[in-house]
Nucleic acid binder design. Structure first.
Lengths: 347, 347
DNA sequence: ATTAGCACTCGAGGTGATTGAGTGCTAACA
DNA sequence: TGTTAGCACTCAATCACCTCGAGTGCTAAT
């Protein structure tokens, strides 16, 4: 006999998950039978639960306990069952309050966003700094620093500066480097990384002598510098994981903390997440084995309509997906708006 | 009858502290009487312990437990009793291993140092980014960004760039701003912040029109930018606090984590600590009430012989001060050396 | 198909006894 | 006079044991 997930099973599963998200305690048949909207006795629920367990949606920690939803159940939940929440006015006020202090440039805004996210959700939050790919060049300046070494400064239309050291083939003086800077600026003004035509730029530098390797290194440096973007991640509320009962086990908590601190894998998660408006990764779906047992929800933010970064929340698999999504949605649009307006208005 | 801390009491206290640092468990009279170098019976030790308690060096969690050293005892310990440790070859190898990858500029080095510190000590570590005060100016460049807004880029001899937005009084074109930049660079080349003579610089800008407010804002911007230094703190091993039994209480751990994450007070600690070669702050000596119960040990690092920043370790009051000091001393000199050499050699 | 009823399971939490590491005090001792 | 042996006492930790109750599966009646 083939079991199917009929409507009633779905309803029951949903009630179980809702309860579990709220209480973090295995939920029993009686609890569900008393649930408004479900007019069934606990015995019936038990039968259904047994079916759901067989289908892989529920798990039993031990015989005489209730059931807890599996990763698979949460997947179903976020895909089909979840009713999406909205922020209440109070939360919106709180969120705006965090963001009101937009002094201090992009980094400060990103940091404030991270703090707001972790405080509002009560989970750990992370915000990837804006990625520069697609941003346009405004100015290039090469400054001699000491013997045979110069520093290359790149300014973009986002008001972000980056800099890199470069080795010069001989002791080029400030004047020469300045002329080269002007030529480069003229050539590359308003270019994005992808627009850079190395050969053409090289040609335009011929008059400054036969230093092919140096020029090549210079252009490569500019390109790679713009391309790599900033790998910086702003974290906040790392301690929040200790608030949730699943991490009362100190060993577990320590482990997660070290994974979070390492940042490299978080960077990969956020980088990849920038391709999609929202992502939800549940428990074992995480690539990093250390993150199994956690869920990650992310949202993208934009600048002038283009996605340039993403932010996310790390919590237990039983996190309140609906609420987290709502908060991420709101904060994402706030951040997008702020960043875009920082380009247009005074700052 | 006046009790004094005679030599024997000191020895006993020292043995107690050593033992407590190692085991984190109240230590009893029998343990000490068996301690090599102390040829006394437990009964005698008990008498001495009672005296030490009366003098405020020991505390009893409850009647039938051993004693634990008070903050006052630890203070005495680090000031007078402690024998200073040296790193063993293996630790030196490990430390060098962390620092071998000095690719990627100052931030990367600072980060690596923080990671090494936390891994070697098993406590939480923090490293304050180099403070620029005392660093010399190399280049100033003002670039128009959009209507009425420009970005000011400052390059120092440490190869550090900083940038700030500035509002222009009218739409100054790139050419004009460039001429102003050159003039400023000429005027301020090789200056430290403290050397800047605002009036003289203002005078030299007269020829660029009567924009007193703008010029003033410009110079102020440069000054304050250099002055404030970077408030960035690199943290590592936040999760390590969970390794120590005093933080098995989740509430306590959460509290400390939130204090650490807030960073503002850590910045103040490290900033102030830059004035001294080493500092040790024990328990209640901390200014931040949230940090009482912790100890902080810091060391200064230098660039070309001048102190430009400090690094520290946060742990329980019973931390292994001798070892932590040795590690900080070693890492401090490594960092100083690396930073100084980054100025001189290619990077 | 649903439900009431029942026997069974098992973790959580409470009780009480035991253990052992520790103390203070006193009296004997060198 | 300082040191030590000895003893009575304290108290947290641990363990065995018990009870409680929330939960289950199964079966028979509706």
């Amino acid at each position: 006999m083939k079991m199917r997930l009929d409507n009633r099973k779905m309803q029951i599963l949903r009630a179980i998950i809702d309860d579990y998200i709220l209480n973090a305690v295995p939920v029993g048949s009686r609890t569900i039978s008393k649930h408004p909207g479900i007019g069934l006795s606990s015995a019936t629920i038990r039968n259904e639960m047994a079916d759901l367990e067989e289908l892989g949606y529920l798990e039993q920690p031990h015989l005489s306990a209730g059931r807890i939803p599996s990763d698979k159940a949460f997947r179903l939940y976020v895909d089909d069952l979840m009713s999406n929440a909205d922020l209440n006015p109070e939360e919106i006020r709180a969120a705006n309050n965090y963001l009101s202090m937009k002094r201090g440039g992009i980094e400060a805004v990103v940091r404030q966003t991270a703090i707001a996210l972790s405080d509002l959700t009560d989970y750990t939050s992370m915000v990837l700094s804006p990625q520069l790919r697609g941003i346009r060049l405004r100015h290039i300046q090469i400054v001699p620093l000491r013997e045979l070494t110069a520093i290359v400064i790149i300014v973009t239309d986002a008001g972000i500066t980056k800099n890199a050291f470069i080795r010069t083939p001989y002791n080029m003086d400030a004047e020469l480097l300045d002329r080269i800077s002007r030529r480069l600026t003229a050539q590359l003004y308003d270019c994005r990384v992808v627009d850079i035509d190395t050969n053409k730029v090289m040609e335009s530098l011929y008059e400054f002598g036969n230093n092919v390797d140096f020029f090549k290194a210079l252009i490569n440096g500019i390109e790679s510098n713009l391309e790599e973007g900033s790998k910086h991640i702003e974290l906040s509320g790392a301690g929040n994981i200790l608030s949730h009962p699943e991490y009362n086990d100190v060993e577990r908590a320590k482990h997660i903390l070290s994974v979070i601190e390492e940042q490299e894998s978080l960077y990969r998660v956020l980088r990849d997440a920038t391709k999609m408006e929202f992502t939800i990764t549940i428990g074992a779906e995480n690539e990093n084995p250390g993150m199994r047992g956690c869920s990650i929800v992310t949202a993208t933010y934009h600048m002038k309509g283009k996605p340039i970064g993403s932010m996310g929340v790390i919590g237990p698999t039983r996190m309140n997906y609906a609420k987290v999504l709502a908060i991420l949605r709101y904060m994402g649009s706030c951040l997008s708006e702020t960043l875009t307006s920082m380009l247009e208005e005074d700052s």
